[in-house]
Write a protein that binds this DNA or RNA. Sequence first.
RNA 1: UGGGGUGUCGCCAAGCGGUAAGGCACGAGACUUUGACUCUCGCAUUCGUUGGUUCGAGUCCAGCCACCCCAGCCA
Length: 585
Amino acid sequence: MDDNKTIEELKAMPLKERNKHIVPRNFIEQEIEKDIENKNITEIITRFPPEPNGFLHIGHCKALCIDFDTAEHYLGKTNLRFDDTNPLSEDKMYEEAIKRDVEWLGFKPDRICYASDYYQKFYELALKLIEDGKAYVDDQTADEIKETRGTLTEAGMDSPYRNRSIEENLDLFKRMKAGEFADGSKVLRAKIDMASPNMNMRDPVIYRISRTKHYRTGNEWVIYPMYDYAHPLEDAIEGITHSLCSLEFQDHRPLYDWVVQNCGFENPPRQIEFARMGIGRTIMSKRYLKKLVELNIVDGWDDPRMPTIGGMRRRGYTAEGIREFVTRAGVSKANSQAQDPAALESCVREHLNQISTRVMVVLDPLKVTLTNFDDGFACDCQIENNPNDENAGTHIARFGKTIYIERDDFALMPPPKYHRLKEGGVVRLKGAYIIHCDKVILDENGEVKELECHIIENSQSGNDTSGVKAKGVIHWVNADDCVPITTKHYDYLLKENTEFDSGKIDEIISQGPKNVDKEYLKSVYSEFINQDSILINKNAYAEKFLETVDAGTHLQFMRKGYFIKDCNDGSAYIETIGLKDSYNK
RNA sequence: UGGGGUGUCGCCAAGCGGUAAGGCACGAGACUUUGACUCUCGCAUUCGUUGGUUCGAGUCCAGCCACCCCAGCCA
């Protein structure tokens, strides 16, 4: 909004008036603004139209954000519509997963619709097209249709059935619906122009016969409408004003407009296309993501390395972080490269920093004995749950004689500017005392086995009168009451400097042995897949407080990273993303 | 050799004829009981390229180059 009008004041205005107070944020909204000026539109209505044949991933988020955020910007509405026009691959399971993901991301559809809601209407409209001489039944086989479609540079040839009488077409199409013909034996085609330079306009097939059980309509229908016919009608029926889709549908727009116009809709929806979003170091294609699952290269669709909404959710990414990323990425028509995953990570970190509960966890423990510990040093250390949230409170970490610190918070041969613990040096234990390292005990291999330190008198946190300055502050756990946990760390799915090349994969497989097994296929994928992308650590110790934290809580293991309890494995914590580290880099 | 699109910093992206926004990444510094966070500063004499129009061009015109999409009874 460009001024101080409240939402209520804006809502009370007619759209044209309201438009003057709304600032377009990208080229789509600029177009919408013009449409509001020049057309008879009373409310902006968009739709998000997934086919229920797979799981949503980060790429879909962009469409989701554009569809919902654009409508919201104009105080309009968005329908969630399942584009279920091809029963072959669609399933209720996917519909439910999509609904769950959309809801989790925080989008609120005005209506939930289905293309299959309109099957009867589509059929009647097809009859009308036939009556108007704008559609015909073609008896050619799929191969014949393909051969006569022409090429990119040569015009197609008219079907021998193109000029059947209206009566015959009507009769044939009704009999198609009645189930009198075999699957694939006939199709209904729009009669447009076989010589069009736009392949989509060369008499596109708009209905096919398929005796496949539809997950919603069962066996009620044996003819199913094609996307290019159904989609514009779905939009028009629902009163969608702006049908936003990705760039590859640009060539379909003339057909979209043809369908809407020839089916007699007065306020035609307008299709506007935007560039898809990709992200580096992962695979975006639904088809190949599926392969990873089938080949057990990943642990299901919600493997934390997957770019699916489910995967990101399980990994601990937040809906806010993901949406912020998409918003920052912007909207354009440029066929761009993949986004740097660092941009997504930055948004996720930013949100996690605001909400996560801090806890001390030592991932790689080094035992430290505090030789001068006595009851005078025993204390309950107050640890802030979240320094960014003053209402988050504190929790207690009990101090003790034997503690564990992070192995790399001690250095036998400290590099320059190292300000953690070294022999003869001091460091502050977060929330507790400053300690001085007196003795290093090595094992038979010369590795540091344990440390003996003493506590500096009067150096208690918040009450330090010791005068000793410790440059470093490190986290720790008390050996007496810490709890062992497992942590899981994930790297990117794809190797560094690798772009997933599905064409190459297909080529290798097509040239390889005839009867390939799973192991062979895995080896083909291994050219791109990061082999060591999962690291499980069973040596970590957490402060006791972690036991009291609710499942699903976003955590920050201080100085290490953001973690979340694995919803598929309650004993393990998944590292959502590490903290930035300007020292080690 | 057809049609539809796109080319602005390593990545994303503003820009709409008046002299290159912003974010991420990166670098330097300040602060810090998380080497996090936060803060400050730096980071395109140049907009795929070549010409043209103009007092003035990333923005207008022409040519060239590069890349993406289209020949499913998929969406």
